[in-house]
Simulated assay, not measured.
Amino acid sequence: MNLNAVNPPPSGAGGQGSLIILAGGLGTRLRSVVSDLPKCMAPVNGKPFLAYVIDYFQQQGITQFIFSLGYKHEIIIEYLEQLTTHNSQLTTHYSIEKEPLGTGGAIKSACEKVSSKNVFVTNGDTLFKANIPALQNFHIQKSAECTLALKPMRNFSRYGVVELNDDSSVKSFNEKKYYESGLINGGLYMLNVESFLSKSLPAKFSFETGYLEKFYNEHAMYGLEQDAYFIDIGIPEDYERVQTELVNP
């Protein structure tokens, strides 16, 4: 196991080239079907779900992957070390939590290892096939601090809804309930690292409530609608569904 990989990515790594993958969760809702693995390592057609996430983002131009790890991180690192021997274009770095920090604390810690101005962030148990170059261009065009990739959905109650102003800035975050239609937060962001780290944020906090919902009125936060494939394997029903929807990368 090469723990030297915890070093930061090399200076000058490009904005489109860097992605933080949050893969430190306990996966409690999936325990009934995947009892002994981190959520992102849940098998899908013979490969970990994480393999599909990595493959898609590599196709979109990502070269630097920073994995935010916690629960059973040794399993993930062992898999990634094997993967890099067959995938010469994959560069991995690790940010390992000694205790759960919440999504916000995990991103904050991982951002300390980012040398580029902006970084993408996504969840290891979610695959949102958004157009990454388009998201980056929009983020830069808007001089945004944070840009959210938003998925349009119909007839749902599992997610809250994000409303936008006419200029695509975030107008509101609305609670989970039944909606006939709306834009959901797809768990994929582009983040201005310096602006994010400049805030007096605690070591442990939720990115969604402690950052997005707290600061969207004060800072440049925007949303970009992306009507692309989206799956969150956090519940058994969607984990079962993904087996028929994804083919091996």
Score class of each variant (00 low, 15 high):
113 K>V: 06
91 T>C: 12
210 G>R: 02
198 S>Q: 15
98 K>E: 15
97 E>Y: 08
165 N>W: 08
137 N>T: 12
156 F>C: 08
110 A>D: 09
120 F>C: 07
174 N>E: 09
156 F>K: 07
107 I>N: 06
114 V>S: 03
141 Q>F: 11
166 D>F: 09
208 E>I: 04
108 K>M: 05
93 H>D: 09
148 L>P: 01
178 Y>P: 03
210 G>N: 04
128 F>Q: 10
125 D>F: 11
205 F>L: 00
205 F>M: 00
103 T>W: 07
201 L>A: 00
177 K>P: 06
160 G>L: 11
109 S>W: 03
200 S>L: 02
165 N>Y: 12
136 Q>R: 13
207 F>V: 01
100 P>W: 03
118 N>F: 15
110 A>S: 15
202 P>C: 00
149 A>D: 02
194 E>M: 03
211 Y>N: 01
138 F>E: 05
111 C>Q: 09
112 E>D: 12
155 N>Y: 13
102 G>W: 03
176 K>L: 08
129 K>D: 06
212 L>H: 01
143 S>W: 07
172 S>Q: 14
94 Y>Q: 11
202 P>D: 00
201 L>V: 00
131 N>K: 14
99 E>C: 08
107 I>A: 09
126 T>Q: 12
214 K>P: 03
174 N>H: 10
187 G>N: 05
171 K>R: 14
210 G>W: 02
95 S>D: 05
133 P>W: 00
131 N>M: 09
137 N>H: 13
161 V>F: 07
138 F>L: 01
137 N>L: 12
188 L>F: 15
191 L>Y: 00
149 A>V: 04
100 P>C: 04
184 I>P: 02
184 I>E: 01
98 K>F: 04
117 K>H: 13
176 K>N: 10
157 S>N: 13
187 G>R: 11
208 E>Y: 07
202 P>M: 00
197 L>V: 05
207 F>T: 00
106 A>D: 06
203 A>H: 07
163 E>L: 12
175 E>Y: 15
97 E>L: 13
122 T>H: 04
178 Y>G: 06
108 K>S: 10
154 R>F: 08
113 K>D: 03
172 S>F: 06
188 L>R: 04
110 A>C: 10
133 P>F: 01
176 K>E: 12
145 E>D: 12
214 K>D: 04
202 P>V: 00
158 R>P: 02
145 E>C: 08
119 V>H: 05
187 G>L: 11
209 T>E: 13
124 G>I: 06
211 Y>S: 01
115 S>M: 09
116 S>V: 06
173 F>E: 03
123 N>E: 14
120 F>R: 06
102 G>D: 03
190 M>G: 02
162 V>S: 03
161 V>N: 05
111 C>S: 13
188 L>V: 15
156 F>Y: 15
208 E>R: 10
198 S>A: 14
125 D>M: 09
195 S>K: 14
146 C>I: 15
101 L>A: 07
189 Y>R: 07
146 C>V: 15
178 Y>M: 12
182 G>P: 01
172 S>E: 12
118 N>I: 08
146 C>K: 04
162 V>P: 07
127 L>K: 12
141 Q>C: 14
147 T>Q: 03
194 E>I: 02
155 N>F: 14
166 D>H: 10
195 S>D: 10
121 V>P: 01
204 K>V: 11
198 S>I: 06
215 F>G: 00
91 T>R: 13
127 L>G: 10
142 K>M: 15
106 A>G: 14
182 G>K: 11
127 L>F: 09
100 P>Y: 05
107 I>H: 09
121 V>T: 03
